[in-house]
Nucleic acid binder design. Structure first.
Length: 686
DNA sequence: ATAGGGTTAG
């Protein structure tokens, strides 16, 4: 290939050829020619560098600029503009700062175009303060300067400040253009500021901007997110020309409106009408189906996407991964992991974060940690995810440790961080630590605790048995307590056997979430354990009268790529005979090892012997037994249960894990339990 | 020189 390059372009034509090669995207040829020019002048450098920038070879562009400077050549504003674009697209703030220094060094501080490019560049590097500082320092500001500032705020997740800058712009007598409008409308969508959106719509019509496809697509979007899909559709139908983005806006609107069928129908229409679909169209339909529970349809679309020659990108993957959350998806999740690895998507923060969470949800905390440790960079969401993962698995100490490391590495915590840390504290009996963290929210981090944080604190106190304190804490809350606050108290009343507080909490829950069967069942169980049969049956009656039925307990276990489910007393499995025989043998070994059945967990009013029998029927025990019977060299058995694990089962599984010499991981409705060597990771504190 | 759509944590 290289041998065919014209090696003898006459010197007076080399610049012209350089331009031709750069414009056609043949940078290799351009570079080859450039290297043959004995003393390339500034024009030649500029042509090559902007060629690199334009074709996305950003690092080359920046490093080429460095070699130009190493030769003591002074840049002009045109060249700096091109490098600024490269720095903006790279998003690396260090490069950006260095380039900004260069513009000062070479005396371009009053160049409006370059100033605008600096604002834009810092904005794209998410360096908001830098962008504002450059903007403030500009002696002359035009509509582009203001627009760049607005989009900096909007794209850095500060829509409020974006709107403020937009208003400031108006006060300064600068009239927005179509670019300004399309930059600021997303902020209106995000803040649900329909009033301003409508004003802008009026302005658009008055100035004939509705022909601009960027503007009208942004209008469709704001109507979809603030008003209704119907209004959005109306604006869409009025558009004189549409491109793929306009269609994608509407497509996304249908799915976020939970109308999966219409979304898919619109997607089919797009294909029929020959809209040139791009990756975002596919991502919208795949993500939309997944978010509406249509996993099969989503996978079908994923296949078609690949057939059509568009590769799943980091966004496809990050919307796909959260769907891998149960036993049967771990294998799929691992496949996605290897795809990410093969296609070099490990660099992407959102993707790796989703991967970390996927493993945690599938019960693989160790894999989750390994991915997290390999991340080159971690933002707030990444740290939060790892903290939450450990909390879910009941490792509050690790969650706290991660929280401290997060603060040490200067990543700012947000309100989710505290929900995660406090949840970890509650599962690991870290009461004093929890209180310190909760208090630090206001004092050290200026984050006002919300109802969820208060619920976590109720959980911290009540799990530790400090029920009265927890109750007082609820009463002192500055907002209406969420069901989770009373739920935490009620759950702990069962463990710590406090009937009076249980009744208070349950009655509150019967008011605020009357349709949740769990509350009735829990109170009834507490009353049965306290031998208050009459009150227990009253609770059952209340439940019946309200037409609420108990959610049946169900457990799942995976054996050789198939998931088997069990309900209490299940005999539908083809190996049921064996399972029950195994339970009898195992029961014998367990008793020898010191296991005593705890019939407090049997709620039927039957004699002792029958109670022991009923305990053996629990779905989680059956699932574990089936898992053990089918072991084939694995060291871990994973069982998921839809409700909370039963206390007797929790004890029994500890014995089973020890006797068989295997690790058993059970995910119940609240968290993960890791049983190993006769102990559970929750240290019986659940 | 500036622009619209698809993504991750509770």
């Amino acid at each position: 290939m290289l041998s065919k390059l014209p090696t003898n372009v006459p010197p007076h034509l080399s610049l012209r050829f350089l331009k031709i090669y750069c414009n056609s995207g043949d940078l290799q040829r351009a570079r080859h020619l450039f290297d043959q020019i004995p003393e390339p002048d500034l024009r030649a450098w500029t042509v090559l560098i902007s060629g690199y920038t334009r074709h996305g070879l950003l690092k080359e562009s920046v490093s080429l600029y460095a070699s130009l400077r190493a030769r003591q050549i002074a840049p002009d504003s045109l060249l700096l503009l091109s490098v600024a674009k490269a720095c903006a697209a790279l998003g690396d703030v260090r490069n950006a700062k260095e380039l900004h220094d260069e513009t000062i060094r070479f005396g371009f501080h009053s160049d409006v175009a370059l100033g605008n490019a600096m604002v834009d560049m810092f904005g794209k590097c998410r360096y908001v303060d830098g962008a504002r500082r450059v903007f403030n320092g500009m002696a002359v500001k035009d509509v582009v300067s203001w627009t760049s500032l607005c989009s900096c705020y909007v794209n850095c997740g500060l829509p409020g400040q974006g709107l403020a800058a937009f208003r400031e712009m108006g006060l300064n007598g600068v009239r927005p253009n179509a670019v300004t409008v399309s930059s600021i409308l997303p902020a209106c969508s995000e803040l649900k500021d329909l009033k301003l959106g409508r004003e802008i719509h009026g302005f658009v019509l008055k100035h004939g901007m509705e022909e601009n496809v960027f503007v009208s697509s942004a209008l469709v979007n704001i109507y979809a997110s603030c008003l209704s899909i119907k209004q959005a559709q109306l604006v869409f139908d009025m558009m004189s020309k549409r491109d793929v983005v306009s269609w994608n806006v509407l497509l996304t609107a249908y799915f976020s409106n939970r109308d999966c069928e219409k979304g898919v129908a619109l997607f089919c229409r797009m294909r029929r009408e020959g809209v040139k679909l791009d990756g975002a169209s596919w991502n919208a339909v795949i993500g939309g189906c997944l978010n509406n529970g249509q996993t099969i349809q989503a996978l079908k679309m994923l296949g078609q996407m690949q057939e059509s020659g568009i590769k799943p990108n980091q966004i496809t993957i990050t919307s796909l991964l959260p769907a891998c959350k149960d036993l049967e998806s771990l294998r799929a999740g691992k496949e996605v992991h290897s795809y990410i690895f093969r296609t070099c998507l490990m660099e992407d923060l959102a993707t790796t974060t989703a991967l970390v969470f996927m493993y945690a949800k599938c019960g693989e905390l160790e894999l989750s940690r390994r991915v997290f440790d390999m991340m080159p960079r971690r933002d707030t969401v990444a740290w939060n995810t790892m903290i939450i993962a450990n909390s879910m698995h009941g490792d509050g100490e690790e969650a706290l440790l991660l929280f401290r490391k997060m603060l040490d590495s200067k990543v700012k915590p947000n309100s989710v961080t505290f929900t995660g840390v406090l949840c970890g504290c509650s599962h690991s009996r870290l009461v004093d630590e929890g209180i310190v963290v909760f208090d630090s929210m206001r004092t050290d981090h200026s984050i006002e605790p919300d109802a969820d944080h208060y619920s976590c604190m109720v959980d911290v106190l009540s799990r530790a048995g400090r029920l009265v304190e927890a109750y007082q804490f609820i009463q002192r809350m500055p907002m209406e307590p969420a069901p989770s606050a009373w739920g935490a108290l009620l759950g702990a009343c069962r463990v710590h056997k406090n009937v009076d507080l249980a009744k208070i909490a349950a009655n509150k829950l019967f008011e605020i979430e009357p349709d949740n069967p769990g509350n009735y069942v829990l109170l009834s169980n507490i009353l049965v354990t306290a031998n208050r049969w009459e009150e227990a049956s009253e609770t059952r009656k209340l439940m019946r009268d309200r037409g609420i039925t108990k959610t049946p307990g169900c457990s799942w276990v995976q054996v050789r790529n198939r998931v088997y489910s069990f309900v209490s007393g299940d005999r539908s499995n083809e190996r049921s005979e064996e399972i029950y025989k195994f339970m009898v043998d195992m029961g014998e070994k367990m008793r020898l090892a010191g296991y005593v059945p705890n019939t407090d967990f049997v709620l039927q009013d039957v004699d002792q012997e029958e109670k022991v029998g009923i305990l053996c029927n629990h779905s989680e025990k059956l699932a574990v037994a089936f898992g053990i019977l089918n072991m084939n060299g694995e060291s871990t058995i994973r069982v998921f249960k839809n409700l909370r694990i039963c206390g007797d089962c929790h004890n029994a599984i500890k014995f089973m894990a020890k006797i068989v010499g295997v690790q058993i991981i059970v995910r119940d409705s609240l968290r993960f339990h890791h049983f190993k060597n006769g102990d559970c990771s929750c240290r019986d504190f659940w």
